[in-house]
Amino acid sequence: MASKLENYLRTYRRRAGLSQGEIALLLGTASGTRVARYERFNREPGLHTALAFEIIFHAPAEDLFAGLYDRIEREVRHRAELVVRKLEAGKQDRLTQHKLAALRAIMNRPS
């Protein structure tokens, strides 16, 4: 199927029957314009706002920002691969083995 949408804020808001202005009040922002920008994927919310959305909709960021989450996950996995290669080329001690196990867990975690 088409990739996940960047976020599902509009879906969750509309399911809750709330307006963009009401969400803006809950977020403590001046107007619904910023909410509209988030919903149209024109702007990414900061951490404070993302957590506020989790609280408002009682849903995890992984669901609310599904497409963004997928993209970040792919990027982190790719970087984990690079760090693994770097560590594998160096000295192999117990700490390195411990780090490699943690990094491989990131790479192999089911999405």
Binding site: M1, K4, Y12, R15, A16, H58, A59, D63
Partner: peptide, 8 residues
């Protein structure tokens, strides 16, 4: 509120 299926 439940999540939604996204594999469809």
């Amino acid at each position: 509120m439940t999540g939604h299926r996204r594999e469809d």
